[in-house]
Design a protein around this nucleic acid. Sequence first.
RNA 1: CGGGGCGUAGCGCAGUCCGGUUAGCGCGCUUGAUUUGGGUUCAAGAGGCCCCCGGUUCAAAUCCGGGCGCCCCGACCA
Length: 484
Amino acid sequence: MASDKGVTPRSEDFSRWYTDVVQKAELADYAPVRGCMIILPYGYELWEAVKGGLDRRFKETGHQNAYFPLFIPESFLKKEAEHVEGFSPELAVVTIGGGKELEEPLIVRPTSETIIGWAYAKWIQSYRDLPVLINQWANVVRWEMRTRLFLRTMEFLWQEGHTAHATYEEAEEETRRILDLYADFAIADAAIPVIKGRKSPQEKFAGALHSYAIEAMMGDKRALQSGTSHNLGQNFAKAFDIKYLDINNELQYCWTTSWGVSTRFVGAIVMTHGDDKGLRLPPRMAPYQVVIVPIYREEDEKTPVMEAAWRMKAALVAAGIRVHVDDREGQTPGFKYNDWEMRGVPIRMEIGPRDVEKQSVALARRDIPGKEGKQFVPQEGVAAAVQDLLESIHATMLQQATGMRDANLFEIVGDYGRFGEVVESGGWALTWFCGGAACEQKIKDDYQCVSRCFPFDQPYPGQQGPCIVCGHRSAEMAYFARSY
RNA sequence: CGGGGCGUAGCGCAGUCCGGUUAGCGCGCUUGAUUUGGGUUCAAGAGGCCCCCGGUUCAAAUCCGGGCGCCCCGACCA
C-alpha cells in the first residue's frame, strides 16, 4: 500500500506503482462509470503534447483533419465479415432515442473504417480524386472486460487516419510511412525506443490485409503496442463499394489504410520512464519543462528572490521554454521538490538568497537523482544552459530506456524450453516463427503470451530457420513477450 | 462470465465475530502561529443517508433476507 508521501515501489508491485503515479501526479481520476476515466488537466496536457507531435507530422505528410460522426448504423459494421467478428463482442449499441425504439440500432463507434468507407464511396469517382488522406481526432468506445487508466478504458481518445489509394503499392507505402512517422515521434519526442514490425495473421486488425505496429518495452518488461498502421487491402473498398475510374476508363476498387495512436500512449510514457519518485517526463512532452522553486525566509529575502524568479522565467519563456514558477505560500521547498518530482518535470530551478547574491541559480535534473544531477549556473545565459540540459535529459532518458530494453531481448533458436523461460521471466524472445495459428495458440496456452511482431530489422535477412513450435522452416523471426 | 475480496468523513482504514453512551484513528482540508537550500511543528476547527431496500429487536454500522456497486486474479483487447 502506498504511503501518503510516496508511491508503491516499482519493484514491489508495478501495477500498483502505475496506478499510484497516475493518480498522484494527477493525470487521471476514476469516473462514476466502470472502466471510464476523467483525464485531469495535467494528464490532458500530456495528451495534447502527443497530439501536437503527431498532428504536425501528419500535416507535413499531406494529411488533413476531418470529423466523422459518433453514431454508426449497425448494418455498416456487418459489411466486412472479419471486422464484425472482431468487434461485435465489445460494441456499445444505442437502441432507444428520444424515448422511442430505433428502427435500426446505432453503434457508438469502436473505430471508424465503416462510416468513413461509406463516405469515401460517395466522394471518390476518379483516379484524380486519389489519394484521399484524412485523419480524425476522436473518442471511441469499446466495451472492455478489464480496464486500467490510460492503458485500456471503455472510452478513449485517439487519432485514426483513413486513406484511400489507387494501387496496392501506394497503400502499402502509406501504411509504412505512417509507421515510420509513429516511430519517429516515439523516439524523437517521447524518448521511447520502439520496435517496428508486422503483426502475425492472428494479431492483425480485424479486416486488415496486414497490420504493422510499434512495440515498446515498459518498465516491467511487458510489451505495449503503442501505435498501429493497417493496410486494409481492398477489403473495406469491396464492402463499401469504394471505386474509381482509372486512366483507362476502367472501374477499380480502391486500396485503403487506417492507423491510430491513442491515449494509451500517455500510459506508455509513464511506464517507460517513471521511477519510485513518480513520473519522469521526456522534455519534449513535458507540460512544464522547468519549474522554478523560490527559497526564502523573511520578507526582505522574498522580494529579491521572487524578482529573480520572475526574471528567470521571462528569460526562459523568451527562448521558447515552458516554465512554471511555484510561488505557493505555506509549502516548504522540500515539499515542492517532491511534488514536482512526482509530476515528472525535467528540470527544477532553485533560487534562494545565496543565488541572488551570487547571480546564479541551481538546476536539478529529474533523470539523475540527488547531488549528481544538480549544478549551479550563472543567471546570465541561463536559457542556453537549460536548453542544453533539456537535450541532454532527452538523450539520457532514451539511452536508459534503450539499454533496459536491449538487456531483455533474447534470441532463441529451436529450444522451446528456453523460449518459455525467457518469456516467463518477462524477457522478449526473438525466434523463428512460422506465423501459424496453431503454433501461436500453443504458445499462448503454454506461456500466456502471443507474438508481438515480425521486426523489420531481421538478424538474418534472407535466411530461414525452424519455427520454435512446429519446427517448419520459417522465413522470419518474431518477438514474443507478455503484453498489456 | 468463472474464482477471491471489499463497501464506515475527500483518501486510507478500525469498529461488525459477541447488537447497547455522543461512531473513532491516520492523512488531507480550514484558521492562526511556527518553519522554509529535501516531505517543519503545534493549537483550534470543519466534515458521516456507516452502499441501498426490507426484516428481527426496547435498541442495528453490527444479526437475517434481498439488491446494487467496486477492486483483484483468469478468457477478450488500442
